[in-house]
Structure formats: C-alpha cells, structure tokens
Design a protein around this nucleic acid. Structure first.
Lengths: 241, 241
DNA sequence: ACTGATATCTTTACGATGTAAAGATCATAA
DNA sequence: TTATGATCTTTACATCGTAAAGATATCAGT
C-alpha cells in the first residue's frame, strides 16, 4: 500500500519558489457564472470527479485516494474535503456516476434486442462487459466498503439501475412488476438474476473463474463460459430470471 | 480509517520504565520443543493467526491491520513481519484457515442430506449461512485485494473447497466429474451454481438485498428469499447447478 | 467603487498504517 | 561455555485521512 513513486511530485508544476505571486494569471479563468454552480476558480467539483475517474482507471481501487485525486487535479491534498466532506463522499459521488453509466449500458443492451429472451441474454452480457471494461468502477460500486448509500445522488442512481433490472425480469416473465410491491416469486426471480450475473462478475474480476476455465475445453473464454451458462439457465425458464 | 482509541495502549502491560529488566519472568515459558515447530517463545506464528481471527471477528476486515494483530497478540508491531513477510502473507494464511473451515461446513451440509436434490439445497444454505456467521472471514476470502493465491497453503485450501463444489454439482447431474477436464456444459453448471450462491452472498453482505426485501411480502427474510430462489431454480433442473 | 463577509483553497499538524533496518535477547549447537 | 543465528523490539520513514488555521479571491451591500 505504498509503492507509487514518492508522492508523484513530478506531476505538479512545482510552484515558483516565491510563493503567492501572480497566481491569478496561471489559473484558468472562471468558466461558468450561473448561480447554482460552484463559483471561484472554475468548478473544482467536476474537475475532481473527472480526476478521480482517471485515477481509478489508471491505478485501480487501491490507488484511489483523496491525495492522489487532489494531485491528479493539481490542487492541494486538502482541497477535496470542502467539496465532498471526506473520502466516503468523493467515492460515493463517483460511484453514482458509475451507476448512471452502468444503467445506460444496460438500457442500450435491452433496446438492442427485440424479444424478451434475447433481451435478457443481451442485458446479462452487457452487465459483464461493463464490469470487464471498467473493473475499477465496478469494484467501487460493489466492492468498496466506503460508500454512503444514503447520499441522494448515489441512492437515486443505484435505485434507477435496480429499476432497470426489475423491468427486465418482469418482461421475461411476461408480467408487469410493481415498483412498490413484489410477490415472493418475483423477488426470488430478481434475486436469482442479479445474483447470477453479479456473482459471475465478481468471480471473474477476482480471477476465480480461472479455476474453471483452466479445466474447460481448450480455448474456452469468459464469454464462452457466460454464454453457455446463460443457455443452461434459459433452457429451463425465462433467461436471466 | 483511524478511529479506534489511540493505538490501544491500555491493551499492553506498559513495560516498566527501566527497559530491558527481568523480561524472562513475565514471558510465558516456551511450550513446545519439537524440531519443525518455531522455537524461542512458544509459537507466535499460531498465536498471531488466532489473534488475527479475533480481530477480524471483532473489528471486521477494515480493522484487520498488521499492527492491530500485533497488539492483540501482545507483541511489537513489527513482530508479524518475520513470520508472514508482510500483510499479504498474514491475510493469505488466515484466508487459508477460512477456506478450510468453509470446506468443512460445506462437507457437513452435504453429508446431512440423502439425495442429490436435497444435498444441493442444503449445501447452498450452508454456504450462505457460513458467510452470515463469519462475514469478516468471507470478506477476507472473497473480497480482499491483498491475498496471494499462489501461496501453497491458500492455493491448496481454496482448491479443496472448489473440489467440493464440483463434486456436488457432479452428483446433482448424476455424472462423474473429472478433476482434470470438464465439458463446457459441466463448466457452465459449476459456474452457474457458484455464481448464484456467491452473488447472493455478496449482495447480502453488502446490504444490497434490502432493496429487494423491502419490496417483498411482509416478513420475508434473507432465508425465505434464498429458499424461494433455490426452489425457483430447482423447478427447472438439478438444483444449485 | 470600496469594503467586509464568505466560500474556496493551501499549509500545517496529528495519529494511523505498512515496511525497512538496526539493535537487543535468548535458545540451540558446537 | 560460548558463538551463532533466529526471534523480537526500537526506531525511522513515506503514505494515508482528517482537522484546524491561515491565505486568497469572489460576492454582496453600501
């Protein structure tokens, strides 16, 4: 947990030795002037989130620290505090962004297929594909122990992506699923679909599937295995739940 | 990540001010004298693992630090280094213990039922129950990013518990599953069973199932949901895979 | 336009962590 | 008995999150 080249001093421009001189010049001019947006220098709030996403993709979940994000954004290590409170705040906002991306990917997959059975398979594949393309983000969303799900933005984004799941399961069961109340069977179907894809994804990201793939027929990839698994489940009843 | 009462100074006897005086007296006498076992003062190796398990159960995965374990064992914070190399080493050895406990629980569940269908259900319930009873340990085994699966003890224990899974899946498919080579269908069945229970377990431990349970009929518990889910999957084909 | 209030950002500081390195101690073997 | 080497402790350092105080720039009110 400490092997990343001495605080990355090189990343910052090494402010001139005479501190506090002509600072307003090298700062990017304020961009927006609306009322609700943060004022002062541009909007650091957005800049920090963008920086955090870069750090997450580059260094993984372990490298996603408050100070690393501050360095990436070119501000002092304590700057994020004022915008997000603490690490939990920053991670939660970033995870909310992830859930929105994720929800869009799932919606696109759903729209790409015509009938319920294919919709389910397409959604499941898109689910795994998202995690494969953004392992750090998926880990943040589902593995991190420092998320505050009571934060409005995170709660809302997470609920929205969950709503997509229930809609998909409802479609493949050919029934309307109420947003408020579920039958035990519906709840079980949702839990089943979610558990299956989430479990597969986690095992994949943790490298646990290698144990299976190594023993499978020559050339079996994660995608092959997933397809076979979905086919196996589809043979019985609505796919993906 | 820093709110645990100032290094727990009270936990240690506060060595007398005159250092290095009469130390041999307050040390427990050496216990074992065999050749292979660590000599010197008793076996700290075992003591540290026991301490680590206590810390894990008491303070969770986040509280399981090298220094906390050393404090719990009553030794200096650097003592574990010599026995486990680094944090990864200690965590990996502890995870190996977890996998062995876990494997035993699964085996017991398998033995408790008579025919394949019930064996599968019993094993799945035991799987979730183990994680529920030892959330810290399950998190260490499947969520920690600091495990070295190439360590012999961990690799062996983890493979053994995986072998139990393949055996169970083989039994419910009424076929012998080779340890070396799997058909794609067999691999898919194993992945399906594992993904389902692992995914359910992770969602449960992360509190994500609440989203479902809140909308399920009054009084639906995790166990109820799990049972319904297994029943749903059993209705189709061999249960649990 | 000027000035005070306030939000934003930086500095400094502290306790925690993992890990390396050097010093102390003690059982074993020669 | 003594030297060797494994075991354990001390000390040190870079990193982390977070709190608090100082600096700075924007905005509001006159």
């Amino acid at each position: 947990m400490a092997r990343l080249s001495k605080e990355n001093k090189a990343a910052r421009p090494a402010r001139a030795p005479t501190r506090r001189v002509a600072r307003a010049t090298d700062r990017p001019a304020p961009r927006r002037r609306t009322n609700d947006a943060p004022y002062h220098h541009g909007d650091l709030h957005e800049a920090l989130l963008k920086a955090a996403e870069r750090v997450l993709e580059r260094d993984g979940l372990a490298g996603l620290t408050l100070r690393a994000v501050a360095r990436e954004a070119g501000v002092s290590h304590a700057a994020p505090t004022h915008h997000f409170g603490d690490l939990t705040g920053l991670l939660s906002e970033l995870a909310a962004i992830g859930f929105r991306q994720f929800g869009q990917a799932m919606a696109a997959a759903d729209a790409s297929a015509a009938t319920p059975p294919e919709k389910g398979v397409a959604s499941a594949k898109a689910y795994v594909a998202y995690a494969q393309a953004h392992p750090g983000m998926y880990g943040l969303m589902f593995r991190s122990e420092r998320l505050d799900h009571s934060r409005p933005s995170l709660h809302e984004a997470s609920e929205a992506s969950f709503a997509g799941l229930t809609r998909g399961v409802g479609a493949s069961r050919h029934e309307q699923i109420s947003k408020e109340q579920l039958t035990l069977d519906q709840a079980a179907a949702i839990a089943s679909a979610w558990s299956l894809v989430h479990g597969f994804t986690m095992l994949m990201l943790d490298g646990r599937l290698k144990t299976i793939l190594d023993r499978a027929p020559e050339g079996t990839s994660v995608e092959t295995l997933l397809t076979a698994m979905l086919r196996l489940n589809a043979r019985r009843q609505p796919p993906l739940g």
